[in-house]
Simulated assay, not measured.
Amino acid sequence: MSYNLILNSHHDLNVALDKIKKDIQEKKLKDYVIILGDSVFYGSPGKSEDTFNAVIERELDGGKSQPIYNLSLPASQTGDIYAMLLKLDQYGISTDHLIFNVRYASFVPRYSYESALFWWLDDLHSLDLEAYQRSLPLEATDKPAIKPYAKFKNELENVLMPYFNLYAYKDYLNESVNNEWVRKTGGVVASDELGPSIPWYEKDTKDELEQPEIQKAFSDAPMDLTEQNVDIYFINKIIAHQKMKDTLLVMTGTNHSLMKPLIEKPGYQENARKINDYLSSLPIPFLNLEGSIPDHLFTDHTHLIAEGYKELGRLVWDAYKSEERHKS
């Protein structure tokens, strides 16, 4: 049994968490895994059946893995992950077994008008006021507020998957809910992929390195990995929440062939080393997948094709189940 979160509003989140809680109670589950993360852990842009958690449950441990609830969402930030942990507490859903991810871009400083959460800033206000205040933009701005769905759609179209011809994402989300029901009742559904999941070298990627969003995500400017960086603040909040719990932190990797001109800059290399050292020093197991998945299995700078997600599933699950990790 594998569950992926499909929603486009706060109401949808509450409905989804209600359903998960009911599923756990009806099946009397004790030993399930929660997955939190961004678009890579979500499985963009491919089919839900090709996400790495679906691969784990279908193909690893003889198809008898622990139940997995994948609550990742594209564009999630470290603050969103922390807020979701608090939401799960609210619903009585255990995070005793947690896998979550970050990537290099997670620690790149934000513009002064950006908040530190993409999805759940309003929820954080009621759940942890101090963290909410810490996550607010550094300066006031006259920039108009953007509704979460509109912001997400813009992110999908202009940042996350710039080379895909997407159909309306809201329609996709609504259709996915119906598809999930059809699957659970034994039916067959049409493809629910966000866009063509094909290798990056079969696309026109000549302008990718010039995109402002990509330039920012791979910035070589020196990083501050103290709590002055709000993402470090939220990583530490996550670690404190997960004290004495079974947690695996994964840093997902980069397409080195496509991003070569950016990632070979000395500043980027120094930042990557500092991030690895910092995450390795945390009191939870850490898996750095930078350079671990072959470049030909990427569909863009960071997302994967189906075979890439299969490899991601193997690497993450091997690390999660390793005897060495459990001994530590």
Rank of each mutant, 00 (worst) to 15 (best):
E213D: 13
Y104F: 05
S44W: 05
V15R: 09
P212L: 12
D23I: 08
P74G: 14
I34S: 01
E49K: 12
L5Y: 14
F118W: 14
I239K: 04
I6L: 14
K143P: 03
G63C: 00
Y149V: 09
N229C: 07
N288S: 08
S94Q: 05
E323G: 06
P67N: 10
L7W: 09
I293C: 06
L85K: 00
S135Y: 03
A54M: 13
G43Q: 01
E307G: 09
Y320I: 04
L315T: 02
L289F: 12
D246K: 15
P266V: 06
I6M: 14
K260S: 15
S112D: 12
P45Q: 02
P285E: 02
D277L: 13
R103Y: 14
D80W: 00
L17F: 10
L88P: 02
K321C: 08
H326T: 11
G291Q: 02
N255Y: 01
N236E: 14
F118D: 01
V15Y: 02
W317S: 02
L29F: 12
K310D: 01
R325Q: 07
K260F: 08
F164A: 04
Y113G: 10
T78H: 06
V108W: 01
N271G: 06
D246Q: 14
T205Q: 12
D192A: 07
S94E: 04
D192C: 10
E270S: 15
P148S: 06
A16F: 15
S72E: 08
V40I: 15
I99G: 00
D231R: 03
L36N: 12
I68K: 00
Q211V: 08
N179P: 09
I20P: 06
L13Y: 13
S106R: 05
R325P: 01
A150G: 05
V182F: 05
P74M: 10
K260H: 13
L173Q: 11
F298Y: 15
I238Q: 02
K22P: 00
Y149C: 04
S9N: 13
H97I: 00
Y3C: 11
S65K: 01
D61H: 06
P67R: 08
E210L: 05
A105T: 03
W120I: 03
D61N: 13
S76M: 03
K64M: 08
P285Y: 03
I238K: 01
K206R: 15
T254D: 07
Y91L: 06
M251F: 08
L166Y: 15
A116F: 04
S281I: 13
D89E: 08
T247L: 07
D61I: 10
D246E: 14
P212N: 08
L282A: 06
R103K: 12
K216Q: 13
H10S: 14
Q25C: 13
K87V: 06
G79Y: 05
Y32D: 10
